[in-house]
């Protein structure tokens, strides 16, 4: 069952050239994919390919000079600025890219309570402590300010805050950047676990290799365009099961595979 769908989606920025003349710079084009319940869909692209903007567009937090076209739907209902306030935190939640998205002057427990209250969820101490425990976070972590947490704990804290509203759809923006393998595995298997509880997860990452063991499907983004969608299990062997030549070239360029530079148009 489809939870979130992007169709014919594109994004451009209005930029000034000189003092008053402005022009539209397209950054995303022809983005179309869906996420169903129980699925982890990985959106993979190099940094600067525009993949984070897809998450920001879904939550309506793009900069003011951005222009969108195409449509974003959640459960068949359009996602736009009229419907977003009721959706954010309740139906869909964002795990942001860095700790700077948390309020630096409030303790983590307080921010978790804010998120629960906004989503209309119980805010009593026990419920919240149990929720944190599920992410391996204890009372000390709850009492800490965001900057006092280590990289891995901060990531888990942001995931705890994002999931406290029990949203159906979770979008995680680069949840493993800056983490070592061990912490990255903890975070990714948490996301997988959420999908196994019939939630939909969009995993935005630059690392194809890290995403593959946890994703069901992979959408490849290059220079603002979709370069095809592949089943995660097709990334195997020499990549015979992959549909697009680009996906095969990426797969063969991984150091654990051939580390080959295939000449791809």
């Amino acid at each position: 069952m489809t939870l979130l769908s992007f169709s014919g989606f594109g994004l451009s920025f209005r930029r000034y050239h000189g003092l008053l003349a402005s022009c539209e710079t397209p950054v995303l084009n022809d983005i179309a994919f869906t996420i169903g319940r129980g699925e982890v869909v990985a959106l993979v692209g190099a940094s600067g390919s525009g993949k984070s903007l897809i998450a920001h567009a879904a939550f309506g937090i793009l900069p003011p000079n951005a222009r969108m076209h195409g449509s974003i739907c959640l459960d068949g209902q359009p996602v736009d600025e009229r419907t977003l306030p009721a959706l954010r935190g309740r139906r869909m939640a964002l795990v942001p890219q860095s700790i700077s998205h948390l309020e630096p002057l409030a303790r983590c427990a307080k921010q978790l309570r804010w998120a629960a209250r906004r989503a209309g969820r119980p805010t009593d101490r026990e419920t919240l402590a149990r929720h944190l425990e599920a992410f391996g976070l204890d009372g000390d972590a709850a009492k800490a300010f965001p900057h006092q947490l280590s990289g891995g704990m901060a990531r888990r804290m942001m995931m705890a805050i994002a999931t406290v509203g029990d949203a159906d759809l979770l979008i995680a923006d680069e949840p493993t950047s800056g983490l070592d393998d061990e912490n990255a595995e903890i975070v990714l298997s948490k996301l997988r676990g959420l999908a196994d509880q019939e939630k939909g997860v969009l995993l935005i990452t630059h690392s194809l290799a890290a995403a593959l063991p946890y994703a069901d499907r992979v959408c490849l983004i290059r220079n603002g365009r979709m370069e095809g969608e592949e089943a995660a299990c097709a990334f195997d062997g020499a990549g015979e099961g992959l549909r697009s030549a680009y996906a095969r070239a990426l797969w063969q360029a991984l150091p654990q595979n051939g580390f080959q530079v295939a000449h791809h148009a």
Partner: peptide, 25 residues
């Protein structure tokens, strides 16, 4: 299914937003 494009083009009609550059000039 509401097209986002439509809404975006209507926006300036509903609320003419004064651009910082226009104001500065």
């Amino acid at each position: 299914m509401a097209e986002l494009g439509e809404r975006q083009t209507l926006e300036p009609l509903i609320l003419p937003r004064m651009d910082n550059r226009v104001r500065s000039f």
